[in-house]
Structure formats: structure tokens, C-alpha cells
Write a protein that binds this DNA or RNA. Structure first.
Length: 508
RNA sequence: GGCUCCGUAGCUCAGCCGGUUAGAGCGCACCACUCAUAAUGGUGAGGUCGGUGGUUCGAGUCCACCCGGAGCUACCA
């Protein structure tokens, strides 16, 4: 089955931060998991580059929008690589292929009567160079500059969003998991039910954008341009091949809650208007908070993902984000929480389990995994595990999958304590039992690591190799007992070494 | 104002279609073990399940109201 997953495309004006890493890692975990299931996967990420803010920033820096976009896009590409994202393509909305396709699609909307010329009327703030909504106004003044605003008119092209009211309501009625979590589904549906207005999809007086094909005085509103990336990329992501047939419609768009409406309302309407299929579902994740507040540079409460990865590794970050905060919810992250999870779970429970298991196999059986009887206790623990985890991933429930996996890790540690192999080793009469215990541990670790592969790919791979499980990486192989004994284990440096961190120099 | 969601052990949260003594993880206390990255395992501490009133043989789990908190209520991306 084709599985097409996307991240939002990131606006090049922003500094790559933890939130970007979060979306990208989430989509990557889903992509890796589906590949493990043998599905035909396409994973897309990229950058959104048009629009006034980029043009303004470029002007401030004395450069061109294109140069600025080139420079900043690389940083997002670097971030994706740094978090070990396995994206199949990195789209930029400035790609000529994308631009051409956006023009073609928008022209189609115009030709089919879904777009018309109209007048946008609103309160315009000169200082912001921007229109304000009624609800934003404070006593009829700009909330930022507190100056009286004038009513301004602008000729725009409008998309008949209002004509998709019923179609959208039907989409939601017939597809209860079009948007998840459920609260976001309700939020989007509620918005639709309130009545949709047409939206303007062009801007004049801006030049950094995709020109409207039939009226080049205008450029296409960046959001229209940006949303289309999910579709346009397929046509040129692979040279000499059009993947559209194969992967459209997208399986899941991973997005943050701040861009819900664009994806849950405007986007499906645009697709319907263009005669294209709508995506199967959207998964909306929450915000990563610090001390209950959204991270922001001005508050100084940011976690730099690069810094974390430099210190603890990429796997640790990938693990932490989905372990600490239920995927789909808002949640607090902190360096303290990070260190606790890293030490207690990755280093102690998983890493140390690997160390003790390998040490015992080496010490008691010269590094050869014994062909023991699968211990009944562990057979029970792993019964149905791959299926349970796959079911979580089918709902994009990464945190749920991780919890399922971690319960097994804990069971393995419990098993070691109960069986006390070091006692069995003292009694030659217990050799068979020791074989069984050691085999069970190796096999349990192998299964757990296979299941963990999408989340902590580097560490899980290293451990699998050390366990002598050289080849098979599919989910099918994650069945307890699928591999018999006989493998030779190898050396394994600590998977997650304890990090000695310099005590914070107390701020004066 | 309207709509949605939430309020369960010190902390973070599970509790599906209502049903035996309300659970997990962290933190804390004590105990056990020594294979291991001084790691692991066990036990305990007893929370009016926000409040009140209902429905029911029986409600954390359904209904009403109240208190407290969060989000959305359209064109910054």
C-alpha cells in the first residue's frame, strides 16, 4: 500500500527550532514504521519561501528574497538531516516546477469559475503594512501601534470557499478520522458550520510570489502556494518519473495546531475544486511548552534542538519528545525532564539492559546465543506486540506505541531479576534453564529494538548488530521467537552513556 | 456571547460500551540482588476521582447545574 506522509513546509523566515524538529521527527517515525511494514512510502518535507515577510527581511538585510530563501532553506534541510529524517524529497516553493504547477492549478480554478475578481475591504495599518481583523482591533486601533486605522480596499481574486460548505460538512460526516485528535476534528467542523466566507487568494503590491497567470500584477497568496506543495512535489521529486498516480492522495499530513484551518478547511476545498482527491487524514500535534508557556526567543525559554543533539545524540531527542508529551497534546518539556528520561529510561532501563544481557551471554556462553527454550513468561509478554504497536501507528499514536514498547522493556528487566541468571550459572544442573533465560533476553531485546527502530534508529541498529541480528529489519521479524539461537554477539559500547554535565554556572 | 475540550495519588497522566478492594510512570521511604552504564527488582505510602443534585440494583465512567482552567470563533506566515 502506498503511504504518503508530509510535514508542514517551514517558513524560511523563521529560525529552525524545536517545533520544526518535532514535526519532522514525527513524520519520519511514521515513515520509518511503514517502511518496516513493507509499505510503499513517500515522505516529504521542505520550505515555504514566498510572501511579504521574506521580501521585507531580505530588504532589511540588503539582499534579494531569493538569496535569503536559498540561504535559509539550507538550514531547514540541515535540520532534517540532523534529526535523521529519511525524507524522500525536500521541496522548495521557489522550485520552478512547483511554481509552474501552482500557476496551472490556480488557472484551472479560475477557468472553472471557482475564482473571481473581487474587492477585499479591511482595516489597514500603515505601520504593520497589513490588514487587521475586526476582532484584533482595540478601540478601532491597531493593537500593536495603537494608531487609528483607515478602511482600505484592495482588488483581489477570491476563491469560492463558501460554495464548499456542504461538501466539507459531508467530508467530515463521512470520515470521522479525517482530522485527529478528535478535539481538532470538532474544532475544524465547528468552524465550517459557522459558515464559510470566500477567501482572497491573491495579493497585489507584493512581488515575491507566484504571479497570478491571468493577471500578473498579483501574486498568489502564499498559503495557496504553500498548501499545493503536497501535491506538486510528486510530479518532479524523482527525476524522469511522475509519482502522482502512485502516491496521491496523501495518507497523512502531520501539522501543528496553529495551521489547522488552512489544512482542514481551505486545503480540502481547493482540492475538491480542482477535481483532486482529498488527503486521507490530518494529524494535528500540539505545542511543546516550557513552564506552561510557548517557547519564544523573547521569553528566552527555548530549547535549541541542535544543542540537545550535540550533547545527547539525535536518538535521545527523538525519544524524549514523544515520550514526554503525548503526541497530539500540548505538553511541557524541560532540560530537567530530558535528563531524567535520558538517564532513567534510555541509559538505565534500555541501555543497561543491553549491557547486562550481552555481558552475561559473553560470560556464561562465550558470546554465543544459546538455542534455549523460549521462556513462557516472555512469550506471553510479547504476544501480539507488533500488532498492538502497528495499531497505534495507524492512528499516528507515536506516544502510545512507545508506551507499548516500553512496557516490554520493563518486563525484560523484571524477568532478569526474577530468573537471576547469575544464580543459575553457579549450578551446572541449571544449564538448560540458563540457556532459556539468556535466549529469551536476547530475543526480547531483539524484538524491542526492532520495534524501537523507527524512533531511535541509530541505537536500535547498533544493538541489533551487537545481538548478532544482522539482517532482517521488518516488523514481521519482530515476533518473539522468530530468530533461533546460535548467533554470535558482538561488542557494544554503551548505547546511551551517562552524560556528565557541567553544573550550570549560577547566573549572577 | 457561541462551540469544543479538560479538572483522577506531591508531579505527569491511563481509565473503552457504567459493575469486584480506582491504576501507571516519576518523586519519596524501606527491603532484596550483584549480571550490568552504583544499573535492576520488590513493598509501602492510602487520592471525598473539582462541587452539588439526579438517573440506576450499582457512576470516576451517563444527565443537569455550579466552580476552575485551556482552545477555537477566518485571510501574519
Amino acid at each position: 500500500m502506498p503511504f504518503y506522509v508530509t510535514t508542514p513546509i517551514y517558513y524560511v523566515n523563521a529560525e529552525p527550532h524545536l517545533g520544526h524538529a518535532y514535526s519532522t521527527i514525527a513524520a519520519d517515525i511514521l515513515a520509518r514504521h511503514m517502511r518496516q511494514r513493507g509499505e510503499d512510502v513517500f515522505f516529504l518535507t521542505g520550505t515555504d519561501e514566498h510572501g511579504e515577510p521574506v521580501a521585507q527581511a531580505a530588504e532589511r538585510l540588503g539582499t534579494t528574497p531569493r538569496e535569503l530563501a536559498d540561504r535559509n532553506s539550507v538550514r531547514f534541510r540541515d535540520l532534517a538531516a540532523r534529526v535523521n529524517a529519511t525524507n524522500d524529497f525536500f521541496i522548495r516553493t521557489s522550485d520552478p516546477e512547483h511554481v509552474a504547477e501552482v500557476r496551472r492549478i490556480v488557472q484551472g480554478l479560475y477557468d472553472s469559475g471557482h475564482v473571481y475578481a473581487g474587492v477585499y475591504e479591511g482595516w489597514y495599518c500603515d505601520r504593520c503594512a497589513d490588514f487587521k481583523t475586526e476582532s484584533e482591533l482595540v478601540d478601532g486601533k491597531c493593537p500593536i501601534h495603537l494608531i487609528t486605522l483607515e478602511k482600505r480596499h484592495e482588488e483581489n481574486y477570491f476563491f469560492r470557499l463558501s460554495s464548499f460548505q456542504e461538501a466539507l460538512e459531508r467530508l467530515y460526516a463521512e470520515n470521522r478520522d479525517f482530522v485527529s485528535p478528535g478535539s481538532r476534528f470538532n474544532e475544524a467542523l465547528n468552524f465550517i458550520r459557522q459558515g464559510l466566507e470566500d477567501i482572497s487568494i491573491s495579493r497585489s503590491a507584493i512581488s515575491w510570489g507566484v504571479p497570478v497567470p491571468w493577471d500578473e500584477r498579483h501574486v498568489i497568496y502564499v498559503w495557496i502556494d504553500a498548501l499545493l506543495n503536497y501535491y506538486t512535489a510528486l510530479a518532479y521529486a524523482r527525476e524522469g518519473e511522475d509519482l502522482t498516480e502512485r502516491f496521491w492522495p496523501a495518507t497523512v499530513h502531520v501539522i501543528g495546531k496553529d495551521i489547522l484551518k488552512f489544512h482542514a478547511v481551505i486545503w480540502p476545498a481547493m482540492l475538491m475544486a480542482s477535481g483532486l482527491e482529498v488527503p486521507e487524514r490530518l494529524f494535528i500535534h500540539g505545542y511543546l511548552l516550557m513552564d506552561e508557556h510557548k517557547m519564544s526567543k523573547s521569553l528566552g525559554n527555548v530549547i535549541d534542538p541542535f544543542q540537545v543533539m550535540d550533547l545527547y545524540g539525535t536518538d535521545a531527542l527523538r525519544f524524549y519528545l514523544f515520550r514526554e508529551v503525548g503526541f497530539g497534546q500540548d505538553g511541557n518539556v524541560s532540560t530537567e525532564g530530558f535528563e531524567t528520561r535520558y538517564t532513567t529510561e534510555l541509559a538505565n532501563e534500555y541501555g543497561n539492559l543491553a549491557s547486562r544481557t550481552l555481558a552475561m551471554v559473553s560470560r556464561y556462553r562465550d558470546g554465543a546465543v544459546p538455542a534455549g527454550e523460549p521462556p513462557a513468561a516472555l512469550v506471553a509478554v510479547f504476544e501480539g506486540a507488533p500488532e498492538a504497536i502497528a495499531a497505534c501507528f495507524d492512528r499516528s499514536d507515536i506516544s502510545g506505541a512507545l508506551e507499548q514498547i516500553w512496557e516490554r522493556v520493563r518486563e525484560l528487566n523484571r524477568f532478569v531479576a526474577e530468573q537471576a541468571p547469575w544464580q543459575l550459572a553457579k549450578d551446572p544442573a541449571q544449564a538448560e534453564r540458563l540457556d532459556s533465560v539468556l535466549y529469551g533476553l536476547v530475543e526480547g531485546l531483539r524484538v524491542v529494538s526492532l520495534l524501537l527502530l523507527p524512533i531511535v534508529p541509530e541505537a536500535a541498529e547498533r544493538l541489533l548488530i551487537a545481538l548478532g541480528a544482522a539482517h532482517e529489519r521488518s516488523l514481521v521479524a519482530a515476533r518473539f521467537g522468530a530468530v533461533a539461537g546460535g548467533a554470535q554477539t558482538g561488542e557494544l559500547p554503551q548505547l546511551f552513556p551517562k552524560i556528565e554535565r557541567e553544573p550550570e554556572p549560577s547566573a549572577a
